[in-house]
Design a protein around this nucleic acid. Structure first.
Lengths: 155, 155
DNA sequence: CCGTTATAGTTACAAGTGAAACCAATTGCA
DNA sequence: TGCAATTGGTTTCACTTGTAACTATAACGG
């Protein structure tokens, strides 16, 4: 019986990428897996997309932001934020009024109902983060922190 | 002048998530940034999506895979693979025929043109990976390797 | 054998996303 | 002032993506 797949000749001449050892690919798998798990949690319980959750999370920390500021803090583009806000305001999770003195800007904050949802979801998200970090020992966690700091630092 | 945003009262009662220190969020930003940079490289030069590139990358390593096997190796779902293959076959980058003895299965491999594209793109991808890793010293790179291994290990 | 179940892959439809166009309010500056 | 350029935000349109349904072939079990 011949071997299922021939890989030797290809590697010799073409140096194909080994996806399973390729950092960008591995990061992408890891990030998607974790984010999906968390998103699953709150999508099961609430009708809430990941972008909507992120908007709520920044409004929980910074009350009164404008849509643009939310976009900055979430690293989302303004269209995505606008859409998320439309749904959140519609669902009564977020309050929006107009900035005095600049009628273009909105002033956003969580409603009581938004806070209730936040206070339910945030601990689930944190618990999932702990689940992930539990796979590492204290030393590894410190290194991870440091490595992410360096990789995420601008330029 | 009053403070722009009140965050203290919220944090006291509601313990909002600090997105900028939240591992899943940070991973997502990092992963998206890196993947976008690489995808930009080959989208500028070829009309090639990230899913298509991943399919090509595994076919470069494992000649003769079926679509399902490609899906397994890329962690993509079979619909995404089917679509990527339709485009790649249409563009003459991938050869598809039917498995002898199981007419459901396809047998996939890169064409000469597919190999040429691969041999052009793979070094760019590797160069981008090196750019990222250059932000770390040797010790940090080793820890990152080890940490990703642990976090990606099944369950 | 023959009917049921499982597998490989594609198609169809709905929902999500991104880029560009757009509107309204504001700012800059001649 | 007043008009061009900028900014905040929404809408539109084309494209991508995900889920479910579907077709064709193969494997299983009586």
């Amino acid at each position: 019986m011949p071997p299922r797949h021939k890989s030797a000749p290809a590697s010799a001449e073409h140096a194909p990428l080994q996806l399973e050892h390729f950092l960008p690919y591995r990061l992408s798998i890891l990030s998607n897996t974790i984010s999906q798990t968390i998103a699953g949690d709150y999508q099961r319980r609430y009708d809430l997309s990941m972008t909507e959750w992120r908007v709520m999370a920044v409004l929980a920390r910074f009350d009164g932001l404008s849509a643009r500021e939310v976009a900055e803090r979430t690293a989302m583009d303004k269209v995505a934020v606008s859409r998320a806000l439309a749904r959140l305001v519609g669902a009564g999770r977020v309050d929006r009024h107009t900035h005095d003195g600049d009628k273009r800007r909105s002033v956003l904050s969580l409603t009581d109902s938004g806070w209730a949802m936040h206070d339910d979801v945030a601990p689930m998200a944190r618990a999932r983060e702990r689940e992930v970090l539990a796979k590492l020992d204290a030393e590894e966690r410190q290194w991870l922190e440091r490595i992410l700091d360096k990789l995420l630092e601008q330029q």
